[in-house]
Deep mutational scan, measured.
Amino acid sequence: TLFEALYDYEARTEDDLSFHKGEKFQILNSSEGDWWEARSLTTGETGYIPSIYLAPV
Rank of each mutant, 00 (worst) to 15 (best):
K21N: 04
G22I: 01
N29E: 07
E45M: 15
A55D: 04
I27W: 01
V57M: 09
W35Y: 13
Y48G: 04
L2E: 07
R39C: 09
T46V: 14
D34C: 10
D34G: 11
D16L: 11
S51K: 14
T42H: 09
L54E: 00
S31L: 13
A11T: 06
E37D: 04
R39F: 10
D16P: 02
D8N: 09
S18P: 06
W36D: 01
F25E: 00
L6S: 04
I52L: 14
E14V: 11
P50E: 07
E45C: 09
D34H: 09
A38T: 02
P56F: 07
D15W: 15
F3T: 02
E45L: 15
Q26L: 14
A38D: 01
D8P: 07
D16R: 15
L28D: 03
F19K: 00
A55R: 13
T43G: 02
A55F: 10
V57I: 11
F25K: 00
T43R: 04
D16G: 15
E23W: 07
A11L: 02
Y9N: 02
L41H: 06
F19W: 02
R12E: 12
E37H: 13
W36N: 01
S40Q: 06
E4W: 09
I52H: 14
D15Q: 14
T46R: 10
V57H: 06
D15T: 12
Y7K: 09
G47E: 01
E23A: 05
F3R: 03
H20M: 11
T43V: 01
T43S: 10
T13G: 15
E45I: 10
W35P: 08
T13R: 14
S31K: 11
E37G: 04
T42F: 10
L28N: 04
L17E: 00
E37P: 04
A38F: 03
Y9S: 03
A5Y: 01
G44Y: 06
L54S: 01
I49N: 00
S51A: 15
K24R: 15
W36R: 01
I52G: 14
E14A: 12
A55Q: 12
S30G: 11
T13Q: 13
T46D: 03
E14L: 11
P50A: 09
E45N: 13
F25Q: 00
G44H: 07
S40G: 03
G33L: 13
F19T: 04
R12G: 09
T43E: 01
D8I: 02
R39H: 08
R12Q: 15
V57F: 10
E4Q: 12
E45A: 12
E10S: 10
S51C: 09
E37Q: 12
F25W: 02
Y9F: 09
L2H: 07
V57K: 03
Y7A: 12
T42Y: 09
G44F: 06
T1Q: 13
P50L: 15
Y53F: 11
A55L: 08
H20F: 14
S30R: 13
G22N: 05
F25S: 00
L6I: 11
G33N: 13
G22H: 06
K21Y: 05
F19G: 01
T46I: 15
A55K: 14
A55E: 08
L2A: 06
L17N: 01
I52F: 12
Y53I: 07
L2M: 09
E10M: 11
Y53D: 02
V57Q: 05
I52A: 15
D16H: 15
A5W: 01
W36I: 05
S18M: 04
A5V: 01
G33K: 13
G22V: 00
T46C: 08
T46G: 03
F3K: 01
L17P: 02
L6W: 05
D15R: 15
H20A: 11
V57R: 02
T1M: 14
S40K: 12
G47T: 03
K21W: 04
F3V: 05
E14F: 09
L28A: 04
W36C: 03
T43I: 01
S51F: 09
F19L: 07
Y7C: 10
S40E: 03
E14M: 10
S18N: 05
P56C: 05
S18H: 05
G44C: 08
T13Y: 15
W35D: 05
W35A: 06
I52D: 13
R12T: 13
Y9M: 04
L41P: 03
R12K: 13
T43K: 03
E4C: 08
G22P: 00
E32F: 12
L54H: 00
T42K: 12
P50I: 06
R39E: 08
I49E: 00
Y7G: 07
G44W: 07
Y9W: 09
R39K: 15
T46Y: 08
Q26E: 14
R39N: 05
Q26M: 14
Y48A: 06
Y9R: 05
T42V: 12
D8W: 05
S30K: 14
Q26Y: 15
G22M: 03
E45F: 11
T42C: 08
T43N: 06
G47L: 05
Y53E: 01
H20V: 14
S51E: 04
D34V: 09
G22S: 04
P56T: 06
G47K: 03
S51T: 07
Y7F: 13
E14S: 12
E32G: 15
Y9T: 01
E37Y: 15
D16T: 14
D8T: 06
L28I: 12
P50S: 10
E23M: 06
D34Q: 09
V57P: 04
A38E: 01
A5P: 00
I49T: 02
A11I: 02
W35I: 10
A38G: 09
L28M: 08
S30M: 14
V57D: 06
G44P: 00
D8G: 07
S31I: 10
W36K: 02
S40Y: 02
A55C: 07
S40P: 01
A38Q: 01
E45K: 14
F25H: 00
E10K: 11
T46M: 09
Y53A: 14
E23N: 05
S31Y: 10
S18D: 05
P56G: 05
Q26V: 14
P56M: 09
T1E: 10
E37R: 09
E23P: 00
S51Q: 08
L54T: 02
F19Q: 00
L2C: 08
D8M: 04
L17Y: 06
L2S: 05
S51R: 13
A5M: 01
S18F: 03
T46S: 09
D34K: 08
D8A: 08
T46E: 09
P56E: 09
H20T: 14
S18K: 04
W36L: 06
D15L: 14
Y7V: 12
S30Y: 12
D34E: 12
Y9D: 01
K21H: 05
L17M: 15
G33D: 14
S51L: 07
E14N: 12
F25P: 00
Y9P: 00
Q26C: 10
R12D: 09
F25Y: 02
A5Q: 00
S51D: 02
G44N: 08
T43D: 03
E32C: 11
E45S: 10
F25C: 01
D16N: 13
D16E: 15
D8V: 02
L28G: 02
S51I: 09
K21M: 08
V57W: 10
N29F: 07
L41I: 09
W36E: 01
P50T: 04
K24V: 14
L2G: 02
R12C: 11
G47I: 05
L2P: 04
T13K: 14
S31R: 10
Y9Q: 02
N29L: 06
S40T: 03
E14D: 14
G33F: 10
D15C: 11
E14K: 12
L28R: 03
I27R: 03
A11N: 06
E4N: 04
R39G: 02
W36M: 04
W35N: 07
N29I: 06
I27Q: 01
D15P: 05
L6Y: 04
R39T: 14
L6K: 08
L2N: 05
E4D: 02
E4H: 08
Y9G: 04
I49M: 02
T42W: 12
L2F: 12
L28S: 04
I52T: 14
G44M: 07
I49S: 01
F25G: 00
